[in-house]
Amino acid sequence: MEVQMLIISGLVIVGLWLILYIFPINLWITAVFSGVYVKLLDLVFMRFRKVPPTLIVNSLILATKAGIQNITSQLLETHYLAGGNLTNVIKALIVADKANLQMTFKQATAIDLAGRNVLEAVQISVTPYMISVPSITGVSVDGIQLIAEARVTVRTNIQQLVGGAGEETIKARVGQGIISSMGEATTYKIVLEKPEDISKRVLADGLDAGTAYEILSIDIADINIGKNIGAKLQIDQAAADLEIANAKAEERRAMAVAEEQEMLAEIQKAKAAVIEAEAEIPAALSMSFRRGQLLTSARARQSN
């Protein structure tokens, strides 16, 4: 008998737990007393849709207490099922509302689903963030190498956060602008004396276009002098010119040697021809004697 009572008691407890789990009455009562209207059946159906009712109700309560309007449980469920972070979205909306930033629930969810931290983005929009640009190396017109370090103060551009370029683009553009400004300086002394001129010029170029940030200021933290690139280039050019001159001189010497060899060959050829001609004289004389031509020629001369 006692065993049966224990079994029945256990079944009753399990049944009550299941009922309270399926019908989160406590959560519904909390929502009602917090000024949030949610149907009890909606909370039950959330279980079947694999949506945590506690997260939805707590998000609604947080938004309602902060004065955020036009947020329903259906919108919150949709964003949760899409893989969004409800807590970050609601907190971001609250921070934006307190800071008088224009942000709608649709914008916040789009930023969140785009993979960005929407809460951090809003916080950076309220409190500007400093980006450290790696060392930038440029060369002035007089050939002096300059190494600068820059700091860029930005804040989030909420309207361009979805699809806008990130921090690395800001660094690349600022570095390019500083290098260009250094390259147009007639002398490195101008850069050292007035680094703020570079900052103003780069800032005026609108480098934040198409990015998720708005550049507030660009500050040159430090400038160091590097190598004398101009002198090094001149030395390298002189060395290259010397190599070219040596190569041309060697070419002329080789041509002179070749011409000398060619002349010697011609002389040797001429000498060989003379020797060959001299060698043919005795044979010609012998032939003439044999033919009697030489005697006939001598008699003809005597008769004359």
Rank of each mutant, 00 (worst) to 15 (best):
A204F: 01
V14F: 13
A110S: 10
A245T: 05
I8E: 15
I229R: 11
I190F: 05
V141D: 01
V57Y: 14
R173P: 09
M5L: 14
A110K: 06
N100S: 12
Q237K: 15
L146D: 06
A150D: 00
K194P: 00
E193K: 14
I131A: 09
Q4N: 12
D112Q: 11
I7G: 01
D205S: 14
V57N: 12
E168I: 07
L294R: 03
E167T: 15
V51F: 07
E168K: 10
R173V: 06
Q268Y: 08
E167L: 09
R47I: 08
W28R: 12
W17F: 13
G183T: 06
I68H: 08
I68R: 02
G10E: 13
F33Y: 12
A221D: 07
D42M: 06
A110T: 02
I235V: 14
I235F: 07
E250T: 13
K194S: 03
L86S: 04
L76E: 00
E266N: 10
S132H: 12
P53Q: 10
S135R: 11
A258D: 10
D112F: 07
A148T: 05
Q237E: 15
L76M: 02
A31V: 05
S132M: 14
K50G: 00
W17Y: 08
Q237M: 11
Q4D: 12
L294Q: 02
Y129E: 08
T78N: 14
K39T: 06
E280Y: 00
K91E: 07
I225C: 01
N100Q: 10
A239S: 13
T211V: 01
G67W: 06
L6K: 14
G292E: 13
A270C: 01
I7C: 06
S180V: 03
I170S: 07
S181L: 05
T296Y: 06
V154T: 05
L119G: 02
L264A: 15
R253L: 14
G206D: 04
G83R: 04
A270N: 10
E278R: 13
V141G: 00
T187A: 12
A272C: 03
T72W: 01
S9D: 12
L20A: 09
V191W: 07
T64S: 15
I8V: 11
S217Y: 00
A150W: 02
A31S: 12
V14G: 04
S199N: 00
I131L: 15
M46G: 05
G175F: 03
F23T: 07
M255N: 11
I90F: 03
S73R: 03
S140W: 04
V257T: 08
R253S: 13
T187K: 09
D219Q: 10
D97M: 08
